[in-house]
């Protein structure tokens, strides 16, 4: 009896000591250099190359302006996963996610208290569109959404529960069908659009956790078609990948938000630097770098200057097609949502 008590007591003591000793070591390291600051960036997976180039430039600018050295800690996860991590206590100072809904989750948790959409771009830092990636030479003859429903096709798209890109993909596909850009689906016919969604999802063989993992899977030779961001395909091609991509006649405009997380910056005393970083991302200089890495600029002048790499889309629609994220999320990805129902029906059948 006595022994057991001692064991339990010791376990408790050790766990407290352990928790305690990890903490000072960490805060100590960030504060040890006088005047040095650390910004924590919690981002989604696809713009990591762009941030790899943007961060060093901002560090130089910040040092020139304030004489302060600034270091960055970066984390890249699927947009939904990253958003949940921040809500669970990952203290990111700045968050750059795939979609507005994931920032709203952080705001709803009370961690973002300012009006983050009170900017000329409504809080958006970059745009992209949903495209179809195919193998070199397009051996399966894919030209538009309608071709994805053919039998014996292997399609990759990430999991909408963890990946923001995946939600854009589903909405692009569904929206194009509903707007009459898939031959077998009459315009405004919800039932036919759902049947088309089901037919395409039936061809999906791998659902990765994030857009980047999905494209890496595609690069390993799995799948005939990948539904993904335009910028993912362009960055892949810049890295020597031989795949091609097709811009469907009708697709959705992807709008990626960025926001300062108030709770984190107030705790870390990094508000000034965090806000300066977000402001920097909106400058033409930074916007040109986003454009270099395949993202369509939110700055009209930069967008015009880089237009040759970004062909216009015949029928480009936005999230407003679905009444904004506040409606699109429950309608498609909620427990009774269209996507959720369709995928569970397919799983039950197989």
């Amino acid at each position: 009896m006595k022994n057991r008590f001692i064991v339990i007591l010791l376990t408790l003591i050790i766990s407290v000591v352990l928790a305690g000793c990890g903490q000072p070591a960490e805060t100590g390291s960030t504060e040890s250099v006088q005047g040095a600051k650390t910004l924590i960036l919690g981002a989604y997976t696809t713009p990591r190359e762009a941030y790899g180039k943007l961060i060093p430039i901002f560090q130089t600018r910040w040092q020139q302006k304030t004489g302060q050295e600034i270091t960055f800690e970066e984390s890249y996860l699927g947009s939904g996963a990253q958003s949940r991590a921040i809500v669970e206590g990952f203290e990111a100072d700045v968050t750059a996610l795939s979609l507005e809904a994931d920032v709203i989750r952080i705001k709803d948790a009370g961690l973002i208290t300012h009006d983050w959409q009170a900017t000329p771009t409504k809080g958006m830092v970059s745009n992209s569109i949903v495209v179809l990636g195919v193998r070199e030479g397009n051996p399966k003859n894919i030209h538009d959404w309608a071709d994805l429903a053919q039998p014996d096709l292997e399609i990759l798209t990430p999991n909408p529960k963890t990946s923001g890109g995946a939600q854009w993909n589903i909405l692009a596909l569904y929206g194009a069908a509903r707007r009459g850009f898939v031959d077998s689906v009459p315009a405004h016919d919800e039932a036919a659009a759902q049947a088309f969604l089901s037919a395409v999802l039936n061809n999906v063989t791998v659902m990765d956790k994030g857009a980047r993992e999905s494209i890496i899977t595609f690069e390993k030779g799995i799948g005939d078609v990948i539904i993904t961001y335009e910028n993912e395909m362009m960055v892949g091609q810049q890295n020597g990948q031989k795949y091609e991509y097709i811009i469907p006649r009708s697709t959705i405009l992807i709008e990626n938000p960025v926001a300062v997380v108030d709770a984190s910056v107030d705790k870390h005393g990094t508000r000034e630097a965090a806000e300066a970083f977000v402001d920097f991302l909106m400058t033409p200089e930074a916007q040109e770098i986003f454009a270099e890495f395949g993202l369509r600029s939110v700055d009209p002048a930069v967008a015009q200057a880089t237009a040759e790499h970004y062909p216009p889309v015949e029928d480009l629609f936005t999230i407003e097609e679905f009444g904004g994220w506040s409606q699109a999320t429950p309608t498609f990805f909620g427990d009774e949502g269209i996507f959720t129902r369709t995928i569970s029906q397919l799983q039950r059948r197989s």
Binding site: A19, G22, Q23, E26, F90, E91
Partner: peptide, 8 residues
Amino acid sequence: IKVAFALP
């Protein structure tokens, strides 16, 4: 004390 998203 930080446990989640930290070493402990």
